[in-house]
Design a protein around this nucleic acid. Structure first.
Length: 479
RNA sequence: CGGGGCGUAGCGCAGUUUGGUCAGCGCGCCUGGUUCGGGACCAGGAGGUCGGAGGUUCAAAUCCUCUCGCCCCGACCA
C-alpha cells in the first residue's frame, strides 16, 4: 500500500490530489487557480489530443487558430452569452504602456471571434458547411479551483461549425456528441451517459446543449464533454448570412463542441486506486515498462540487460516506438522501481530477473488487478497486446458496473431524497418541472439534472410536480 | 463572496496558551557501507532572515495591527 497517498475512503479529494502529486502529473502555479501540467500529465493530454484530433479529421474537420484576445464588444453582441460568461472573464485594460480604448477579454470560449470571422468568410451556400476546430487555452476565472477539474486557465479543443440548414447543424451537434462518447469509452475506458442539458445548465447562447456525463468513484457526476446546437443565435449576432440556391439571404446555423484537460481528472477519478494512478492502455503514453533486476551488477549488465533490450525492441515493433520503456534506474531497489511505475499508472510491468532468465519466462504484473502472469519469452509480442486489450476492457467494464450499481430509479420526491442521501450516485426520474422546480430541488438536495436521456420517448408522471409528459432525467451531485 | 482552518527546511509537522537555552522532529535529499523480486538498514552530512510589513519589549516563531497566500465547506463553472 502506498504510504504517500491518503486512502480514497478516508478523504476523497485529498486522495485525488495525492494521486496527481505522486504521479507528478501537475503542480500548483504561482497564480492562484492556475496549474502547471508536468511532463507525465502533459503526455496524457497529448495522447488524448492526437486521438481525438484523428476522429475530428475523420469526420471532416480541419484545425485553425483564432486569437486569445477578444474585443469586449464582441461578447456583448449575444445577450445570454455575455450574461453567462462575464463573471468569469479576465480582461486586459492596459497594454503597450497605455490604457486601451476598448478592453480586451481573454477568451473564455471563442464563439464570438469565430462568428465575426465566419461572417466574412460566408457569402454563398457553397461556402457551407465550415467545419473548423481549434486546440487552445481558455481562461475562466474560478473561485474554487481544483487540479484538472476546475482551473482558471485550461487547455481544450473547441469545434465551431456553420451550416446551411437547421437539420444539418443538428446532425453535426449529435455527430460530435457521438464522437466524444465513443472516444471516452474506447480510449479513456470512461462509460458516459449522453443526454440533453436542462434549460438552466445550457451553454450561454445555445438553443440546446448535449453532454457526456460520467460517474466518478465518489459517485458524483462529471461533465466530460459538451456539444451545442447554437441555432441562429450567433449568426444573427455576428451576421453570418449566405445566399441560398434560390438567391435568398439566410442566416447560417452553427454548432460548437468542446472537451478539455478535465478529462485527465476524469481518468484519475474513474480508474485510480490507493496505490496511485491507473491508466487505460489506450490513453497511456507508455503502456509497458520492462524492468531488468538482479542483485549482481555484472550478471545484470552481461546477461539480463541484453535480454531486456531484446524484449524492448520486440515490443516496440509490436506496440509502437514510444509505448514501451526500459527501466534502468539501477541505483534503486526493485521495490522502489516497481512503485515508481505503479504510481505513474503504467498498465503493464514486465519483470526480468534471474528466475525469468532461467525459465525463459517473463513476470508480467497488471496495474489494474495486480494480477501476476508468466509469459513465455517467445510469446511476448503476441501476449502483451492481448493483455493490454484485456486491461482496457476490464477497466471499462469495472467502471460501467460501478455506475450501474449506483444508479437508481425513483417515482417520488421522497424516494428521490432517500436514494440520494442513503445511496448517492445517479438517480433517474421522470421530470416535467420548470427551471424553478429544478432550482428548488437543487436547494433541497444539492443534486442537479445532469441531463435528459435522448432515447426516452415514453411520457410519464413527473416525480416532483406529478404533471404528465415528463422526460427521463438523470440527477446527481456534480463536480 | 460568506463560514471554518492554516502559513516554521523540498514535503508533513511540534513549538505560540505562559516572550528568554526553541531553531526542533519525521520523511525526503547528499556521502559511505551493508542490502536488493511490492516502498531497506546503519553511520555521517547539507538545508530555515519561523508567509510579508509595521509595532510593543532589554529580548518576538511566540504579544498587537495591517497585509499576502493556501486548504476545507457553501453560492458560480469545461
Amino acid at each position: 500500500m502506498a504510504r504517500n497517498i491518503t486512502p480514497r475512503e478516508k478523504d476523497y479529494s485529498q486522495w485525488y490530489l495525492d494521486v496527481i502529486k505522486a504521479a507528478e502529473m501537475a503542480d500548483y502555479a504561482p497564480v492562484r487557480g492556475c496549474m502547471v501540467i508536468r511532463p507525465t500529465g502533459y503526455a496524457i493530454w497529448e495522447s488524448i489530443q492526437s486521438q481525438l484530433d484523428e476522429r475530428f479529421k475523420e469526420t471532416g474537420h480541419v484545425n485553425a487558430y483564432f486569437p486569445l484576445l477578444i474585443p469586449n464588444s464582441f461578447l456583448e453582441k449575444e445577450a445570454k452569452h455575455v450574461e453567462g460568461f462575464s463573471p468569469e472573464c479576465a480582461v486586459v485594460t492596459y497594454a503597450g504602456g497605455e490604457e486601451l480604448e476598448e478592453p480586451l477579454v481573454v477568451r473564455p470560449t471563442s464563439e464570438t471571434v469565430i462568428g465575426h470571422m465566419y461572417s466574412k468568410w460566408v457569402q454563398s451556400w457553397r461556402d457551407l458547411p465550415i467545419l473548423i476546430n481549434q486546440w487552445c487555452n481558455v481562461v475562466r476565472w474560478e473561485k474554487r479551483p481544483r487540479l484538472f477539474l476546475r482551473t482558471s486557465e485550461f487547455l481544450w479543443q473547441e469545434g465551431h461549425t456553420a451550416h446551411a440548414t437547421r437539420e444539418e447543424a443538428m446532425e453535426e451537434t449529435l455527430r460530435m456528441l457521438e464522437v466524444y462518447r465513443s472516444f471516452m469509452e474506447e480510449v479513456l475506458a470512461l462509460p458516459v451517459i449522453v443526454g440533453e442539458k436542462s434549460e438552466g445548465e445550457r451553454f450561454p447562447g445555445a438553443e440546446n446543449t448535449y453532454t457526456c456525463e460520467a460517474m466518478m468513484t465518489d459517485k458524483r457526476a462529471l461533465q466530460a464533454g459538451t456539444s451545442h446546437f447554437l441555432g441562429q443565435n450567433f449568426s444573427r449576432a455576428f451576421d453570418i448570412r449566405f445566399q441560398n440556391k434560390e438567391g435568398e439571404l439566410e442566416y447560417a446555423w452553427t454548432t460548437s463542441w468542446g472537451a478539455s484537460t478535465r478529462l485527465i481528472g476524469a481518468i484519475v477519478m474513474t480508474h485510480s486506486d490507493n496505490d496511485g494512478l491507473v491508466l487505460p492502455p489506450n490513453v497511456a503514453p507508455v503502456k509497458v515498462v520492462v524492468i531488468p533486476i538482479s542483485p549482481d551488477q555484472s550478471r545484470l549488465q552481461d546477461k539480463i540487460l541484453p535480454e531486456a533490450k531484446n524484449i524492448l525492441e520486440r515490443l516496440k515493433k509490436a506496440l509502437g516506438r514510444d509505448q514501451v520503456i526500459l527501466d534502468t534506474q539501477f541505483h534503486m531497489r526493485p521495490g522502489d522501481r516497481f512503485f515508481y511505475h505503479l504510481q505513474r499508472g503504467i498498465p503493464l510491468r514486465l519483470e526480468l530477473g534471474e528466475a525469468e532468465l532461467a525459465s525463459s519466462r517473463l513476470r508480467a504484473v497488471r496495474r489494474d488487478t495486480t494480477e501476476v502472469i508468466n509469459i513465455s519469452l517467445d510469446a511476448v509480442d503476441r501476449e502483451v497486446p492481448k493483455l493490454l486489450d484485456d486491461i482496457q476492457g476490464n477497466l471499462l467494464e469495472r467502471a460501467r458496473t460501478f455506475r450501474e450499481q449506483n444508479t437508481y430509479q425513483v417515482n417520488s420526491f421522497e424516494e428521490f431524497k432517500e436514494a440520494l442521501n442513503e445511496k448517492g450516485g445517479f438517480i433517474k426520474a421522470c421530470f416535467a418541472g420548470t427551471p424553478e422546480d429544478e432550482r428548488a430541488i437543487k436547494e433541497a438536495t444539492t443534486a442537479t439534472i445532469r441531463c435528459f436521456l435522448l432515447d426516452d420517448s415514453t411520457e410519464r408522471t413527473c416525480f416532483y410536480t406529478k404533471k404528465q409528459g415528463g422526460r427521463m432525467a438523470v440527477f446527481a451531485k456534480a463536480y
